[in-house]
Amino acid sequence: MNQASRRLRAIFIAVPSLTMVAVLVLPAIGGLRLSFDHNGAASLHYYREMFRDAMFWRALINNLILPIGSLIVEFAVGLGLALVLTARPKRSRLVEVAAILPFAIPEIVILTLARYLLMPRGYVNAALVAAHLHALPWISPSAWLAMVSVIVVDAWHVTPIVMLMLIAGLETIPPELYEAAALDGAGPIAAFRYVTLPMLTPAIIGALVLRGIDALRIFSTVLVLTGAEGVPVLSTYAYGLWSDSQLPREAMAASMILALLVTIIGIGGLAAARKWAPRQTGLA
């Protein structure tokens, strides 16, 4: 059985892996070469040009601020919802479906909706005016408020994923631990602090790494809400260079900086997850 089945397994690994490499990795390598190619010679020309562009530095900084902001919101709300949904023996089906729904809706639909809610004469401003408050420029390009809007909308769509990952973590905590804590006189806050939080840490780290890698690649939220240059991030900056300015090499240079950023943070995060949360990330 061994020889023949080993050969089959080798083929079964090779065919899908090579497909992914050919479609996803090879183009990225081609793009890397393109970004260093200036009139046929290897050169840092496009990178030097880019480092002189103020828009690039704004995109780079936003590409760190927005993911961090989004992670904070989605983990705070996600943890809260996970605790609400696991607190009672009988779960509220309505809250459960409502909590998962934003994730079920296609991303572009969520963003379309967000645009109608936040545009200058949209529903949010209508509600503010009805409450005798001032209308606010929620998605005006360059406003700091637009960054808040991007963070909240990004978190809105993905909080259910965080919630589901944390619920899975919460469900592995043995109920006996809570019974023991209650016998020792621990109130709900002490039980959370000394039982839930330590037991949940691996799930939180695992979720943080997976979500963090995804959050760094933020693209559609920014593009749909504010346009490519309203609140630039590296993806939309590269997209603008390619699609509006027809500058593929400059665009590749920018996207390679993003790839570098994701790879460094991703490899660091995956190593951390392997150490502290091997089961949650399937890296055991």
Binding site: R9, F12, I13, P16, S17, M20, V23, L24, V25, P27, A28, G30, G31, L34, I213, L216, R217, F219, L234, S235, A238, Y239, W242, P248, A251, M252, S255, M256, L258, A259, V262, T263, G266, I267, L270, T281, G282, L283
Partner: peptide, 28 residues
């Protein structure tokens, strides 16, 4: 060994940002 290579392929491709793939892929 299949598990190791499989998880490496699955998590490795996840590190690639869409934009770094899509532009050169469009050219190809």
């Amino acid at each position: 060994s299949g598990r190791k290579i499989g998880f490496a392929a699955v998590s490795g491709t996840r590190l690639l940002p869409m934009i770094s793939v899509a532009i050169p892929l469009g050219i190809a």
